[in-house]
Amino acid sequence: MTDSPLMPLWEVFIRPRNGLNHKHVGSLHAADAKMAMQAARDVYTRREEGNSIWVVRASDIVASDPDNADENFDPAADKVYRHPSFYDIPDEVGHM
């Protein structure tokens, strides 16, 4: 094995069709953006999975720390007043 630097890692996002979001589908290694794009096309769209690809260098992604998941996401759990079902309105009103 040589001392070559590690081949950079890219995350791949695919939009299945117009009107939908790009969605994370996997990752791959490539030296640069152009090769990452070509490899993503070969590997992740062999069966008409989409019509648009994003590739993003994994090292450019800023991710939240799972250790902070409680303080980040728990506070939303007791805010039921943010949901429509929290409010009482007469049945006669119908759909609102």
Partner: peptide, 8 residues
Amino acid sequence: MYSQGLIG
């Protein structure tokens, strides 16, 4: 994802 961040 995050894998290279974990190496080492």
